[in-house]
């Protein structure tokens, strides 16, 4: 595909245009690949399951981030592109049930994995309701990432302590609101879950099943990640 001389890479993805020298980059920018002539970037197809739907994305540059693929190739703009350096937490998505920073996770790492973005929650659940109620005054840019971190926290600790809440929020920057409303929102979500029978210690057992896929899968028929693709966890990993 990339052999076609008049192939417009921007038409596919928006990031593959690479020319000799890259004049728009700051002076002194170094490329590992010698910039003698237009370079063809190594691309690969990526197959993964996003929010329960198997997808195949052709021609993913090896250094494309998962966030880029989700937003620009798949049109899932729920995860936000904040800093691109792993500081802000706006890009958090779940990879095989584990929260990861979309901007620092290469799309390659999602091959054969289950990706969950905030779109999986559709009209929202008790976490989004609590966040909307307490943090609705803000712009909302940070909320998709925070929501996923909070759901992971509640799946592991249905009744988290304040320090656990604060630690789970610590990787998320919010420029609109202080941390207080977020802590309140997590508490309320935890109470709502307990009241509706989703939380409590019983759900904790269910939540951490063998595959560690959390009990937040939007579609109950969605199978857990295939065992073969699971990363072997260390011997001392929690037993659920």
């Amino acid at each position: 595909m990339s052999e076609a001389p008049d192939h417009d890479p921007l038409g596919v993805s928006g990031s593959y245009a690479v020319g000799a020298g890259d004049p728009w980059l700051p002076e002194g920018t170094r490329h590992e690949q010698p910039a003698d002539g237009p370079a063809t970037l190594a691309t690969v197809p990526i197959r993964c399951v996003v929010n329960g739907d198997p997808v195949e994305v052709p021609q993913v540059w090896v250094a494309d981030s998962l966030l880029f693929v989700l937003r620009e190739r798949l049109g899932l703009t729920g995860a936000k592109d904040g800093c691109g350096e792993g500081e802000c937490g706006a890009c958090v998505v779940l990879l095989d049930g584990e929260p990861v920073l979309g901007c620092l996770t290469p799309a390659l790492a999602a091959e054969g994995s289950y990706v969950t973005t905030v779109e999986a929650y559709g009209e929202g659940d008790e976490v989004s309701a609590a966040l909307a109620a307490h943090c609705g005054a803000g712009c909302g840019y940070c909320l998709p990432g925070i929501g996923l971190s909070v759901r992971t926290l509640l799946a592991r600790q249905p009744e988290p302590s304040e320090s656990a809440i604060r630690e789970s929020l610590s990787g998320h920057l919010c420029r609109c609101l202080p941390p207080g409303p977020f802590v309140d929102a997590v508490r309320e979500a935890s109470e709502t879950r307990a009241a509706s029978g989703l939380g409590g210690s019983g759900a904790h057992e269910v939540g951490l099943d063998e595959s560690q896929s959390l009990n937040i899968a939007p579609n109950p028929q969605q199978p857990g990640p295939p065992q073969a693709s699971r990363i072997a966890h260390q011997a001392v990993a929690p037993r659920g």
Binding site: V18, D22, L25, T29, R30, H31, E32, Q33, A39, L41, A42, V62, A63, S65, G84, E85, G86, C103, L104, T105, P106
Partner: peptide
Amino acid sequence: MVLANAGRLRPSG
């Protein structure tokens, strides 16, 4: 990936 996102790393693989 921080370098790659900033355009400072273009690995062949």
